[in-house]
C-alpha cells in the first residue's frame, strides 16, 4: 500500500477516531470542553448581535432584545430564504456528483494497482494545493464561452473541484480499511451477491462514505470566491449574501444570516461526529 492509499488517510482516520473515542479521564474531558468553548465562544456574539438593537459600548449586556434582523432576513424580498434553498440545492448536487466520481476513484486507489497510479494520486491532491481562485478564474473564462457561467449547474460543476479530493481521500481510506473477506464469508454462508451488498457491504461502508459526503457538503457549502466568480455574482448562495452584510458592517443582519449559514454545517458536523464515534466504538475492540 502506498503512502497515499493508506498511510495518509489512516493517520487522519486515527486522529478522528481518537478525537471521537470516549475521552478517558478528567484531563481528556476538560481538554474536550476547552476545545468546545474555543470553537463555540467566537460564535456567541454573532448570535447575540442578531437579536439586539442599539447595543452601545459602555453597556455590557444588550439593552434591548429585537428580532427585526430576523424579520428582515426572512422577508420575501431579502433573498435569504431563496439563497438558503439554493445553497442546499448546490451543496447536495455537488456532493452527489463528487460522490459519483470520487467513491469509485477512491476504491480504485485503495484496492487496485495500475500504471500511472502515482500520477493520479498527485492529481487528486492538486486542487488542495493550487489556490482555488486561480482555478476559478480559468474555469470562469471557459464557462463564459460555453454559457455555464452565472448558472446554478455551472456553480455545481465548479464545486466539484474542491469537494472531489475530500471524497476521494476519505473513500480511499474507507475502502483500504474494508475487509473484503467479510463479503466472501457472507457468500459462503449462503448470501447472494445482492444480499451481500445489502446486508454486509453497504452497512459497513455507509458510515465512512457518509462522512465523505458530509465533508463534500461542508466544503461546497462554504465556497465563496468560486461561487462569486463562476456564478457571475448571479447565483447568490449564503456565503455571498453574508459577505454583503459583513462588509457593510450590518452586524445584526449579518449575525442572523451567519446563524443560518452555520446551522447546516453544525448539523453536518454533529452527524459526522456521531457516525465516527459509532464506527470507532465498533473498531476499538476488533482491532
Amino acid at each position: 500500500m502506498t503512502a497515499f492509499g493508506a498511510a495518509l488517510p489512516r493517520r487522519a482516520g486515527a486522529l478522528v477516531r481518537r478525537a471521537a473515542a470516549r475521552p478517558q479521564g478528567f484531563a481528556a474531558r476538560s481538554a474536550l470542553a476547552l476545545l468546545l468553548v474555543l470553537l463555540v465562544a467566537p460564535f456567541l456574539p454573532v448570535v447575540v448581535w442578531s437579536v439586539t438593537r442599539a447595543w452601545f459600548y459602555p453597556a455590557i449586556v444588550p439593552q434591548t432584545l429585537d428580532l427585526s434582523a430576523w424579520t428582515s432576513v426572512f422577508s420575501a424580498t431579502s433573498g435569504v430564504p431563496a439563497a438558503l434553498g439554493r445553497s442546499v440545492l448546490i451543496a447536495l448536487s455537488a456532493t452527489g456528483l463528487a460522490m459519483l466520481f470520487g467513491v469509485p476513484a477512491g476504491r480504485a486507489l485503495a484496492l487496485h494497482r495500475f500504471p500511472g497510479r502515482r500520477l493520479v494520486e498527485v492529481l487528486v491532491l492538486a486542487p488542495l494545493v493550487v489556490p482555488p481562485l486561480a482555478v476559478a478564474m480559468g474555469l470562469h473564462a471557459v464557462f463564459l464561452k460555453i454559457g455555464l457561467a452565472g448558472t446554478v449547474p455551472g456553480v455545481v460543476l465548479a464545486h466539484i473541484i474542491p469537494t472531489l479530493p475530500y471524497v476521494i481521500l476519505v473513500s480511499a481510506s474507507v475502502f483500504s480499511a474494508f475487509d473484503t473477506g467479510l463479503e466472501d464469508q457472507a457468500r459462503s454462508l449462503g448470501a447472494t451477491p445482492s444480499q451481500v451488498l445489502r446486508h454486509v457491504t453497504v452497512p459497513l461502508l455507509a458510515p465512512g462514505l457518509a462522512v465523505a459526503a458530509l465533508f463534500a457538503f461542508l466544503v461546497s457549502w462554504s465556497q465563496y470566491g468560486l461561487t462569486l466568480l463562476v456564478g457571475s455574482g448571479r447565483v447568490p448562495t449564503m456565503p455571498l449574501i453574508l459577505m454583503q452584510f459583513v462588509t457593510a458592517g450590518r452586524q445584526d443582519v449579518a449575525g442572523a444570516i451567519a446563524v443560518l449559514t452555520v446551522l447546516p454545517g453544525v448539523l453536518a458536523l454533529v452527524l459526522s461526529a456521531r457516525i465516527l464515534a459509532a464506527a470507532a466504538a465498533r473498531e476499538r475492540t476488533t482491532s
Binding site: V73, T77, S78, G79, G233, R234, I241, Q244, R250
Partner: peptide, 20 residues
C-alpha cells in the same frame, strides 16, 4: 438582472419589493 450593492436590507427590500 440589476446588480447593486447588497449591504443594506432596506435597499434590498425596496428593490426586490415595491420596485420589482
Amino acid at each position: 438582472n440589476f446588480f447593486l450593492w447588497g449591504g443594506d436590507d432596506r435597499i434590498n427590500a425596496y428593490v426586490s419589493g415595491p420596485l420589482a
